[in-house]
Design a protein around this nucleic acid. Structure first.
Lengths: 322, 322
DNA sequence: CTGTTAGCGCCTTCAC
DNA sequence: GTGAAGGCGCTAACAG
């Protein structure tokens, strides 16, 4: 691989000038000299070695993104939005999936840190413990932050979203509005459970529980149907759970929304093409990603972004033709 | 951030020994000295600076992965499987989405190269042009490779998958078996179209066409239904298209599989929880990812992996209870 | 406007 | 078993 010194030799100049050309500064270069350098670089296939540059400038142009599971539709969209924003800054995205076993959260974070990434975005979900100390690396928590965290966090307004969902279902005449939560009340879903309890006015109400997967929610729904205890209205904490619920209902001939009304809380694009289409509280992932990336530089702050109610048919607003 | 020299000073030794300890070689270190180094490092929060290490060793422990769109369920699974394999090697994954506009394919590849990644995995789909010259960086094409490419490629056996799908639908008595392809016949989908033409014995058969998205296929399906030209059996080139098709059918009351039988060709996990569940030719993404990552080191080769028929109900094997 | 040169932090050869 | 020192390729003073 060609180096700056090779380009300099071929262009009949010095490595300093090569650097000035490729960095547009900090010193000016005569147009003609610049062209000679560019030509030499092109003919050698030269590109600056970013490792050497990073060692010198202590900037890597790398941003680490840690996600629970890129396979979940909501995180996939968020991940793509983040990558787009990061690329817009001329940086590259390092990605890690928290759930892969070889590679726990702490390890990934430690690896990001020793890689000297310019910043880290943590899409934090089911964890209430705080992240290891990352020293001076800028960190933004996206989606949720651990208790007592004092840095920057960008998240959806879970309280508001759940209240909107409960009220909407009440508008359809429902009085027994249940929620499918995760196995434990932690993270954003924990907040959603609390908000749900407040909204239905029963501080000790117990949510339905399943893993955050299509299969988990489908299994739960089958059990409820077998036991004859399927409620008439359910708010799903995640899109995967809502989709699993729909699949089980379809399988057993339970009609949505006639027999069971459903609202889902993340509202990723996949929820538009389910049968029937899901009414959701949509989180504006593009905006959240933009804010998170910008927030890596700048003063710590916490921002809650309201979710938007998107009315489709699973709630009862439109019955499908049968 | 603490440096090796700080650790050495605190441990009363030299930077060489610190290096020996953190790299387990190349020279032995007395147990007691090693412990002093480890203690010093821990108390300083020292981790080796991977940038400096990389400059010295010319290994970055970074692998670049380029994907068309991490948001598509198939690519999401593949991406996660790749990241797991790469992490298993102790390396980090750099990800790029081809479709983001700020950041075209060539740019991403160029950026990977100048970052000195240890290898690049290209999940190549709709492109028949060859990738820019990456010099000596090991490259593996996954899913598809450009014409005339002579390096390593790992892909699913598209020919075999389509033939299996056609035969399966024939077994259900279908004679007019159509395919939904992309807008143009390129990449893996182009291969699938050719295979479909051969399988149905009509070399000039024209496939149905839509973008690779839920919305595109749903729109196409609505047009066919409006025109009264919906066929009785469709093979979808991608899972997104199959899901869009199902959504449109549901919307109009077209019954699957009674009125329309569907088989999808990628078979990502999302296809298990549609209404009805999709019969698919499932591509073993975990295996493909494993082979791709291993193939970064080693001699060039081309491997075709057979897809597996997973029978669910959209093909007609099981009618759902209504 | 251009050239010379000192490090950035680490690994590793060579000497002890 | 341990230490001293050169150099990976680049950037940015500083000098001319």
């Amino acid at each position: 691989m060609a180096k700056a010194v090779d380009v300099a030799r071929l262009a009949g100049t010095s490595t300093a000038v090569v650097s000035y050309v490729f960095n547009d500064g900090p010193r000016p270069v005569a147009a003609e000299t610049r062209q000679r350098v560019l030509d030499a670089a092109a003919s050698l296939g030269y590109a600056p070695n970013r490792v050497a540059r990073s060692l010198r400038t202590s900037r890597t142009d790398l941003v680490g993104v840690l996600v629970p599971d890129i396979t979940a539709p909501y995180f996939a969209v968020l991940g793509k939005d983040l990558e787009r924003e990061i690329a817009g800054l001329g940086k590259l995205t390092l990605i890690g999936n928290t759930e892969t076993t070889q590679y726990r959260e702490g390890d990934a974070l430690e690896a990001f840190r020793s890689t000297q990434v310019d910043g880290i975005i943590l899409v934090w979900s089911d964890n209430d413990y705080s992240a290891p100390d990352l020293g001076t690396t800028p960190v933004v928590y996206l989606f949720h932050a651990p208790e007592g965290f004092s840095g920057t966090m960008i998240a959806a307004d879970n309280e508001d979203a759940v209240v909107t969902a409960v009220e909407h279902l009440r508008g359809h005449g429902h009085t027994d509005i249940r929620m499918i939560a995760g196995i434990e009340d932690r993270g954003p879903v924990g907040e959603r459970v609390s908000a749900w309890r407040r909204a239905i006015g029963d501080p000790s109400a117990e949510p339905l529980r399943s893993t955050y997967s299509n299969a988990g929610a489908a299994e739960l729904a089958r059990e409820l149907m077998d036991a004859g205890t399927l409620p008439a209205a359910i708010i799903a904490a995640t899109d995967e759970q809502a989709i699993g619920l729909l699949a089980a209902a379809y399988e057993r001939g339970v009609r949505i929304p006639e027999d069971l009304a459903v609202i889902s809380l993340d509202g990723s694009p996949a929820t538009e093409f389910t049968a029937p289409p899901l009414t959701v509280l949509h989180q504006p992932t593009a905006l959240m990603a933009q804010m998170a990336v910008r927030a890596m530089t700048g003063a710590p702050h916490k921002t809650l972004i309201p979710a938007e109610l998107i009315v489709r048919s699973s709630c009862g607003c439109t019955k499908h033709t049968e």
